[in-house]
Structures are given as C-alpha cells and as structure tokens.
Design a binder for these strands. Structure first.
Lengths: 182, 182
DNA sequence: TGAATATGAATGAAGG
DNA sequence: CCTTCATTCATATTCA
C-alpha cells in the first residue's frame, strides 16, 4: 500500500514536513536536535510562551506547529521515564541469581530524573520559583501501566535460562495452562 | 493477500539469542502460537503485569523481552483493525461481493472488537483487580496548563517567513542562541 | 537479487 | 500525566 522505499534512512532531510505525506509532523534533524538539547538542558514542560518561542525557532527548519512542540515534550518526557521504569522492571523480572557477569547496564546515560537545569546554557526559568519547589516525582509502583517505549538503548536483551544457541533444551513445558497462567 | 499461510516456515529456532542477526525479536512458532491464542481468547491490551507473565512464559521458548509482547499486541490489534477497515472500504468500493477470498480470510478471525474474553479458557481478570481508587489528577493551574485548548482552537502553523513547501532557502540561522532564545 | 510484503519497533497525536 | 490509536520507519522474509 503505502510506498515504503527501502532506504529512507535519515528522517529530517527528506522533507520539512512538506514534500511527501504531510499527514503528521516529522521533525527534521535540526528540529530534533534542538528539542533534544532543550530537553537535556532540563526543559520538560514548557509553558505556552516557551512553546511558542520554540515553535517559532524551529519553524525555521521546517514546517511545524506549536502543538507539535507541546506533544513532543509530553511524549518524550513520558517515554523517557517509562523507559527507565520498564528497564528496572524487566531486570527485576529476569533477575534470577546475581550471576557474576552480565550485571547489565540499566542506568544508562542521563539519569537526571528531575528538571535539572544546565545553567551553562543560560536557560529560561524552566520552573522558576513558581509554585512547587521540589516536585519529587515519586514513581508509585503501580502494577499496571502502559508499556510504551522502554526500548532502544542497550540491547540488554533479557536472557532466559533456556534458549541457548540453537541447542534444544528439554524444557519443562508449562504448556496447557496456556491461557490460564496469567 | 495470497493465502500463503502465516507459515514463517523455519523461523522460530534461529533467534535463540544466537544464530543470525538478533537485530530484532522474531517470535518462534510456539511463542506466536501462544500470543495468537491469547489474542483470540480476547486479550487485546494486556497490563504490565500480564505482559510480564506472558513474557516469562514465552521466554521459555526463546529469547524475548516484555517489550516484544507489548509491541506484538499493539501491532496485532492495530493491524487486525486496519485490515478489517480496508476490507470494508474495498467492499464498499465494489458495491458487491468481491467474491474473492479476502473477505473470508478475515472474517475467519474473531470479529470481536472489544476485549471480550472467552471464559471457557479461564482467563485472568482482564481488567479486574485494577486500581482501587481514582487517581485524582490535580492539574495545577499553571500558566502553561491546558495547552490542548489552545491546540484545538488554533491550527496556527506557526509559519515563518521562511520555510515554504519544499522550497530550498538558505536560511539565516539564528543558531547559537539555541537554548537562550527563550 | 531486487521488488513486494510481513511485521517488529518507534513515535506523533489525542482522549480522558 | 496515563493510556491508546494511527502511521510511519526499518528489516526480515518471500518470491519471481
């Protein structure tokens, strides 16, 4: 159906939201770069005003609407958090015995959970003395959450005691309880 | 849509964490079987908890991460819906029985749109034991709140004097002030 | 072997 | 902010 050429690779350069399908905004590399920088600089929930400015700035690199900026931050923030959360769960789940090796590297890069701001960049008043001072986002260990991306990053592929190299293991088929084990 | 059975032939066993490129998860026939059964049993959007269990169960048949399970259900549900949608359109277009097997191929699947559960299988409490109480989401009346309102009303494409459709323009990069323009 | 297709993975966009 | 849907991207797989 939809044409999917083999090598699309680069995202941003193909079109600034123009050219092809204008169904939805597709950030250009430049836009993405800026957004990421802002995020990493500590920006998480930009105000309407900030969104407006960012949008204007980014519009320079391609078509964009302020709502795109709004959504981008919302999604990015959420997914970044979930990713971290999921990884820990995943680990916890597959953690059998503290095997010597494979101590995994869950933490990953920026573990800056909070709205930490990098002054070096002369940021805006991200959350400046507004109402809440310390919004320690306590991640309540809820049992059910959405899953979304906790993906990418390290391929800390959870191993399983079974499944070796093609080798067939006389696995203890739990079987039957197919649909009831949940 | 040739009726080529989903038969992935000899796929399942290759990704035991070995063999070929483990770029991405490739379900083994057993895993696929279970996932499909669960889906047909009515499971559509498993909770994190369910995903964990399923993942554990499936890990027995081969390397797998919980995220794979998450994605599988997301994709399967979406594509099932999409397929059905396309068919109806197709049908609508022809104004008469396509007479082709396409329609049948699909109808073969359970047309249960909802999370209908087949009790026969003694399913889990799909949605039961859910959260106990409400999660009163307090939206702080910040100035940046409710952006959605704004989004709805204005489709302000925050245009810019530059950036037109596809047109190439040697933009005057404001650059530098990346993070300071706010 | 390259086009067509199946499907895992990612993310923009909304609804609530 | 959480959850879900719709699309799209990226590959593995098929097949002529």
């Amino acid at each position: 159906m939809s044409f999917s050429v083999k090598g699309r690779s680069l995202r941003g350069n193909n079109n600034g939201g123009t050219g092809t399908k204008c169904g939805r905004w597709n950030p250009t590399v430049e836009q993405l770069k800026i957004l990421t920088d802002l995020f990493r600089a500590g920006l998480r929930t930009p105000t309407t005003d900030q969104i407006q400015k960012i949008s204007t700035e980014l519009s320079f690199y391609g078509k964009i609407e302020s709502k795109n900026v709004f959504y981008w931050f919302q999604n990015h923030k959420a997914r970044e958090r979930q990713k971290r959360r999921k990884i820990s769960i995943d680990f916890d789940h597959h953690h059998h015995q503290p095997s010597t090796r494979d101590v995994f590297e869950i933490s990953e890069e920026d573990c800056q959970e909070e709205e930490k701001v990098i002054e070096t960049l002369q940021l805006f008043p991200v959350n400046s003395f507004e109402d809440s001072n310390s919004k320690v986002d306590k991640m309540r260990a809820r049992g059910n959450n959405q899953y979304r991306e906790y993906i990418r990053e390290t391929t800390t592929t959870s191993f399983s005691p079974y499944s070796s190299c093609g080798a067939e293991m006389e696995h203890p088929p739990p079987l039957d309880l197919r649909l009831s084990f949940l």
